Simulated scan of single mutants.
Amino acid sequence: MKAEHHLHIHYTIYQNLTELPEKAAHLMKEAIAARQKAYAPYSHFKVGAAVLLKNGHIFIGSNQENAAYPSGLCAERVAIYQASTQYPDEEIEMIAISGTAEIPTAHPVSPCGSCRQSLSEYETKQQKLIPVYFMGAEGNIIQTDSIKDLLPFLFDGSLM
Rank of each mutant, 00 (worst) to 15 (best):
C112Y: 04
A40Q: 06
S158P: 04
A34F: 07
G113P: 03
S118V: 08
K23Q: 10
P108N: 07
Q64R: 14
F59S: 02
K128L: 12
E30P: 04
Q86L: 14
K128A: 14
Y81F: 15
G61C: 04
Y14C: 03
P21E: 08
A101M: 12
G157H: 10
A101Q: 12
Y87F: 15
L150P: 01
N140K: 15
T85V: 13
S120E: 07
Y42H: 14
G56N: 12
I142N: 04
R116A: 04
G113Y: 10
T85D: 15
N16K: 07
Q127C: 12
Q143A: 12
S98W: 00
L150Y: 02
L129P: 02
P111E: 04
L119Q: 01
Y133M: 05
E4Q: 13
E123N: 05
I80E: 00
Q36I: 07
V47A: 03
S146N: 10
E123P: 03
N140G: 12
Q117L: 06
T12C: 06
K54G: 06
M28N: 03
S98Y: 03
I142Q: 05
D149K: 03
A40N: 12
V78A: 02
N16P: 05
H107W: 09
L119G: 02
L159E: 11
S110T: 06
G48N: 05
I9P: 04
I92W: 02
N55C: 09
